[in-house]
Computed example of a mutant assay.
Amino acid sequence: MSIPAFGLGTFRLQGQQVIDSVRTGLELGYRHVDTAQIYGNEAEVGAAIAQSGVPRSELFITTKVWIDHLATGKLLPSLDESLSKLGIDQVDLALIHWPATGDAPAVADYLPDLLAAKRQGLARQIGVSNFTIAHLQQAIACIGAGEIATNQVELHPFLQNRQLAQFAAGHGIHLTAYMPLAYGKVMQEPLLQDIARQHNATPAQVALAWLLQQGHAVIPSSTRRDNLHSNLAAQTLKLSSADMQAIAGLDRNERLVNPDFAPAWD
């Protein structure tokens, strides 16, 4: 099962705010919803899904296993708890949210548990998030590239992660871009504004289309209905090769998500 290219992110959204965002998104046509254990909103996401009336068969739901649950014996129970909060029997995609701090435990210690979650039916697909090339190499050695549905990473015009993207592509590993609008910074970028004017679009639509045309999935988030609706239009925006090349020139390795437990980035 492929990962829908356009999804709805829920990072930093809490309580009624996340319920409203997800319900609105589903009403507008979003069918891919991304959450995580550490977001503290799985129950609210589940409530919004239940209230929406959209059949489960039409939805693609992703959650991510937090680093505290990577130790032996903790991963599967944590996923069971996530399913309970979400009110579903199975997620479509379960990801390791971050490699373990200091690589303890090692990738080879916890990825077999994630694979077991898939085989037990807790997740239809599995993958990783915030994995570097070195971590991907370990993951491939452990469970094989074919089991890694995606690597969800920060990716936007100002952080293009080219080495990682090239490595992933070379091994047939799909990328999902989180923070695709760089916390809204894309809206202030003159080049993106200029390209947007040429296409009668918004800078956000241009940034999203740029990612989509490279074959990546995107999971922007918003609490505003007009932004949720506008972002969807990126799916029909076709950028020229000149546009794509110009945006490629915006790369400045500007990483916005870099907690103290992050790995050594490529």
Rank of each mutant, 00 (worst) to 15 (best):
W66P: 02
A204L: 08
A217I: 06
L114K: 00
A248R: 14
A246Q: 13
T62F: 03
R56D: 08
H135A: 00
L256W: 09
D194K: 15
A123S: 02
P263N: 03
I148L: 15
A217G: 14
F11I: 01
L212A: 12
Q138N: 12
T132L: 04
G146R: 13
A264L: 13
N227A: 04
S52K: 02
A149G: 11
N227F: 10
D113K: 02
V218C: 07
P180A: 11
I67L: 09
I148Y: 09
P77Y: 13
T35Q: 04
G170C: 07
E42S: 00
T62L: 05
M187H: 11
K85F: 04
A106S: 14
G87E: 05
Q214D: 04
A149K: 12
G172Y: 11
N258W: 11
K85G: 03
F158E: 07
H156P: 01
G29Q: 11
L70Q: 14
E44N: 11
I247F: 08
V65D: 00
Q198L: 13
H216I: 01
D113F: 03
Q51N: 09
N231L: 05
G144K: 08
L93Q: 07
A50I: 04
A207T: 10
G102C: 04
S82L: 01
F131D: 04
I96T: 10
E44D: 15
A217R: 13
P180F: 10
L237Q: 10
Q235H: 11
A123C: 00
L79A: 13
A149V: 08
L122M: 06
C142I: 05
P4D: 00
